[in-house]
Design a protein around this nucleic acid. Structure first.
Lengths: 328, 328
DNA sequence: CGCCACTATGACAACGTTGTCTTCCAGCGG
DNA sequence: CCGCTGGAAGACAACGTTGTCATAGTGGCG
């Protein structure tokens, strides 16, 4: 900036005025300054500006499990849209379902003085956030709640959705339903299990623990579960996939099965409608989840001091066929 | 920081020494300072630190068309992995295939003094980058080249892949092959068209412009193309989808067709192997694309001044069935 | 002609850090 | 007892900006 000032023969304050479009600058001077800026390729340092003005940095942080997972990338997109509309940039990070990594990312973002943080938490301990939140960094949890603090949270109706899935399968004659989901350490998986259990009770079928498998979904873990629960004597006639990852592995494991059991997946996913038979899903609006959380965050950024809110978004069954086949 | 200093009864310099783990601090003093830091919830302001030290900001920028598109989110993930290994955070932005937005994002990132920028360019004019690059911000283009400047670029073999797709279809007896791709303004679409043309020539079938449709893929545009080219009298017997978006719309448009034409898609996509018939694709390693670009960027960040490099990554045909059916 | 209002510009401090240099003091050898 | 060494801590400036206040010049008006 001082280089520009020297070249234009003015003080740096005048340069500052020009780059900030302040009115009290003579047009001729402004032109000289702009020419110097152009010539030197000057670009204002936003970091210094924010420091001096004590203003916000114009960034927010978003932490998800994996930015590469289509579920989270859709979330990312929705968040980015809202952030852009508020003139903010988004710093993203993948926690890899590791609470230490989550913490590291959150604190790094705080050091960078982001205006707020959106986090799909990996861990269940969030005491470390208390000083940061007290220091004025708003945090909104999405898809999963905070562990041991009260904070703004946006969730989906995991229990209700899974109850609905069970009801649909029972309605079509199933009584032995398998439930495959992620590790029970993960909030959504635990909730969906509760929903599964409640669905069994409400619909008058026995809740059979031996038909439940909860493990980090991989081709192997899901393949094992399929062999154990869906083949052999007295197999389950239907299966609920606890999330989109499980569903994909499940479909792959069942690709060459003679008889495909009835199936409903929690989470919609691309091409589910084009499979044979099309996969029925408990769908929820991922974009709406991101939007709601981001809007709540920006309300906080702009000074909303009301009590922490908890929003639960509805889910709905999309019956496409795979859940509407009778038991064989 | 001065609050911490006051509370601990030391100067701010000593606090600085403590937070930076500098050696010449008495253990008792350090402990007092740490206690004060804890009590006040102090966190060092990275912006101020970077300003003072004149060091890098520890961030890089990534600009893609749409962070929500699975193709780009996989790219994002690969880039994030490399960035993390270099201790950097990633600022992401979606250009929405709009060159003005791309420019805006790039310049915003430059103002934030990111250490480098990775961009999947939307526009073809990148002169605006020259001063920024001269000022020391390295830029690497990926998936598409820069418009009118020389710069580091990582691409995939669009032409070779499409030639291979044509060859595969011709090998299975097709002579009327439709080509559906995104707008020719997009580099990859244009290159793939060139590959299609060359594939026709090399394999001894006529290049028929009336079988080519290049438009931003939507359900409508692809549906129209399908009705026009793949049904009616003398339809094409095979179709090449120019990218994953086109492929998905194409599959949906063909879902209820009596006879499905042979099909090959450029870009692999999730569940392609589980459709009926499984979709043959020209696959490329999206993660490798992101990795290669990010590694090149960090080499530049660390001072590599060699001539701009152009890397072209190989693609390969994954024959799953949809491209290996004979013309009906 | 003196005074005022107004415009255009600049000097200076401050934002939160850290690098450099200085100061202070304890311990030690002569 | 003096001077020296080295460890611990502080004073001060500077990074690139911008807010505040001061100053210089210009034109109008009584």
């Amino acid at each position: 900036m001082s280089d520009v000032a020297r070249l234009a023969g003015v003080s740096i304050k005048t340069v500052s005025r020009v780059v900030n479009d302040e009115p009290a600058v003579h047009p001729d001077t402004a032109e000289r300054v702009m020419a110097a800026i152009e010539q030197l390729g000057f670009r204002r340092n936003l970091g210094a500006r924010n420091l001096r003005r004590g203003s916000t940095t114009g960034t927010i942080g978003l932490i998800v499990e994996d930015v590469g997972n289509p579920f989270y990338s859709e979330l990312n997109r929705a968040v980015e849209r809202i952030a852009t509309s508020f003139g903010r940039q988004v710093l993203t990070g993948s926690s890899e379902e590791n609470s230490d990594r989550e913490r590291e990312l959150v604190l790094e973002f705080c050091s960078r003085r982001v205006d707020g943080i959106l986090v799909v938490p990996a861990g269940m301990q969030h005491g470390y956030l208390v000083p940061e939140m007290r220091a004025g960094t708003p945090v909104v949890f999405l898809d999963r709640p905070a562990g041991d603090i009260v904070a703004d949270t946006v969730l989906v109706d995991n229990i209700g959705g899974t109850v609905e899935a069970v009801a649909q399968l029972v309605k079509h004659g199933h009584r032995r339903i398998a439930f495959l989901a992620d590790s029970p350490d993960i909030f959504t998986a635990g909730e969906r299990l509760r929903g599964f259990r409640e669905g069994c009770v409400r619909n008058g079928i026995p809740y059979d623990e031996s038909l439940v498998v909860m493990r980090t979904p991989t081709a192997e873990s899901v393949g094992d579960a399929v062999r154990r629960l869906l083949t052999g004597p007295n197999p389950a006639t239907a299966v609920i996939a606890g999330n989109n990852r499980v569903a994909v592995h499940l479909l792959r494991a069942l690709a060459h099965a003679r008889r495909r059991p009835a199936m409903i997946s929690f989470d919609d996913f691309e091409l589910a409608d084009l499979l044979d038979p099309p996969v029925s899903v408990i769908a929820h609006d991922v974009s709406a989840l991101g939007r709601a959380a981001a809007e709540l965050l920006f309300a906080r950024v702009q000074g909303d001091q009301s009590a922490p809110r908890k929003v639960v978004l509805p889910v709905h069954l999309v019956a496409r066929g795979s859940g509407e086949v009778a038991p064989s």
